[in-house]
Every structure is written in C-alpha cells, then in structure tokens.
C-alpha cells in the first residue's frame, strides 16, 4: 500500500501529491474493471433497470440500518438490496406481469420506505451524501476491503459468466440445456447488490447505475465478440474512472458525476465510430 502511494506520488502532477487523491485513484483502479464486467452482463441481459432498482434499494437498507441502530449499516444495505432483487425475480415469476412494471413498483416501494425511515424526526439532509457520494473521503482501510470483495465478487461472477450470458441470450434455450438454474441469476443479483453497496459511499445512489451500464453500452457499439466486449468495457471503464477523477480534481466537482459525464462522452464517441462504420461498410 505504502509502496503504491510512493509510486503514485512520484508522478509529476499536482493531484498526485494529495493522499486522498492517491486513495481515490487506487479505488477507481480496483473497482472500474469489476463495474465493467458486471455491466457487460447487465446490458446484455437487459437488466439495466433491474440493477438500477437494486441500487436504489440501498437507500431503504440504510434506513433499516439506522432504525436498528447499527454503527455500520453496510450489511443492512447489502441484505436489503439482495432481498429486493430476489423479490423482483420472484414477483415477476409469480404474477407473470411484465418485468418493467414489477421493477418500477418495487423500486417506488423501496424508495418510499427508505425516505420514510430516514426522514423520521425530519432530518433527511444528514443522509444526502449518500445520494451524491464522495470519492475523496475513501480511506486506506476501505481500499483494502474493496480489493478483497472485488476479487471475490469478480471471481464468483466469472464462474457463472457463461451461464448468466446464455440465460440472457434466451432463457428457454438455456433452460433446455440445463443452464437456466436459479443460482446464476441469484449470484448475479448478489453481485450487483454487493458491488453497488460497496461503492455507494463514493458514487452515490443517483448515478451509480450509469457506471455499470455506460462502459458496457459503449463497448457494445464497437465489439465483435464476447471477449472483445468485456475487454473494451474494462478499458473504457478504467479510462473514464481515471479521467473523471482527475478532471473532478481540477474542476472541483463531485467525482462520481464527473466520471459518469466522461463515460457518456465515451459512449457518444463509440456510437460515432459505429455509425461511420455502418456508412462506410
């Protein structure tokens, strides 16, 4: 850790002299590839709205954590996000309503419950930092945690990657091949819940989903096969994370949101490449 700090601080940039920036950079480098990996599955399985709902559910988890008087509401957040994910999948199977309706009403419910719980006593403002997030507040200990959880989640996700992808291509085809089991979807759901919750502190509830979706959506514009898709998404995610972090330092803006804007620019750029190719070819 100290070594990494020493290396980064040798860089001839103003921002590299600040410890909080070095911490933030490490966090981005750890988390960006994981976001991209999950994002490729989220986008391909058309679950962008689903992951959005899980992200928003963490507000309710926070409310529950506060209600129960937990010092660190982390596990309450993860638990509630997971519960909502499972709930959405189960409700959709049970009612056979369309997925977007089920997600929308689950999300509204959890948001409302979260706001009600957190606004008891009339002081919601205390929690508004969770809406926007603050990357620069991240500590060295948190980076260690991020690293370990990212490895675990990423590894687990890679184990189920083929299954999840084939379910996304066509569920009944996957099921007929014995690949439509319940667990890959749950694993996927758990991965989204964990990763969203882990990173909530610095990105914020409002925009965390775009970090999942944008790099993958951009990669989709130019990738020709599944491996390229993931590699390009990881590349874009890293680039946007680092570029956004540095830009936010100089522009003095919220980091998470700045990263999202850079990612959006990447998306537009790849879209341009795709259109040009379509016109030429």
């Amino acid at each position: 850790m100290n070594l990494l700090h020493a290396v980064i601080s040798r860089l001839p940039f103003e921002w590299a002299q600040f410890e909080f920036m070095r911490n933030a950079l490490l966090a981005v480098i750890i988390v960006a590839p994981l976001f991209a990996l999950i994002g490729t599955l989220v986008v391909n399985n058309r679950m962008a709205f689903f992951s959005d709902a899980i992200g928003h559910a963490s507000l309710t988890g926070l409310g529950l954590g506060v209600l129960l008087g937990l010092a660190d509401p982390f596990w309450a957040l993860v638990f509630f996000s997971l519960l909502l994910g499972v709930g959405i999948l189960a409700l959709q199977r049970f009612t056979r309503s369309s997925m977007d309706t089920v997600i929308s009403l689950s999300m509204c419910f959890s948001l409302a419950l979260g706001v009600v719980l957190l606004s008891r006593g009339g002081s919601f403002n205390r929690f508004s930092s969770y809406l926007i997030g603050d990357l620069l507040s991240i500590t060295a200990r948190e980076i260690g945690q991020l690293f370990i959880t990212s490895i675990l989640v990423g590894g687990g996700l890679l184990l189920g990657y083929n299954r999840i992808l084939s379910i996304g291509l066509n569920e009944s085809l996957a099921r007929s091949r014995g690949r439509g089991a319940w667990w890959p979807q749950m694993l996927f759901c758990a991965a989204i819940a964990l990763v969203v919750t882990m990173n909530l502190g610095w990105v914020g509830i409002l925009i965390i989903n775009s970090l999942l979706v944008l790099p993958a959506a951009a990669a989709r514009n130019i990738a020709h096969d599944a491996r390229q898709y993931v590699l390009i998404a990881v590349g874009i995610s890293l680039f946007c994370g680092i570029a956004g972090l540095i830009t936010s330092f100089y522009a003095n803006t919220a980091t998470g949101a700045t990263i999202v804007l850079v990612a959006m620019a990447c998306f537009m750029a790849t879209l341009g490449i795709k259109w040009r190719k379509a016109r030429v070819g």
């Binding site: 990657y161 083929n162 299954r163 084939s166 291509l169 066509n170 096969d225 993931v230």
Partner: peptide, 29 residues
Amino acid sequence: PQQLDFDRDSPINVHDLFATAVSRWPVAL
C-alpha cells in the same frame, strides 16, 4: 425453441453462443 428474438445489436457471435452453452471457461477471459 420457437423463433428466438435475439438482440440484434448484441456483440455475441456464433462461437460465443456455443462457448457459453457448452463450456465453463468464461468467454470474458
């Protein structure tokens, strides 16, 4: 199955379709 509607923009090629269905090595890697 009955005519599948695949996402036309999906970056998945025929080889990926086979690999995800028959192999455990993640196509991402």
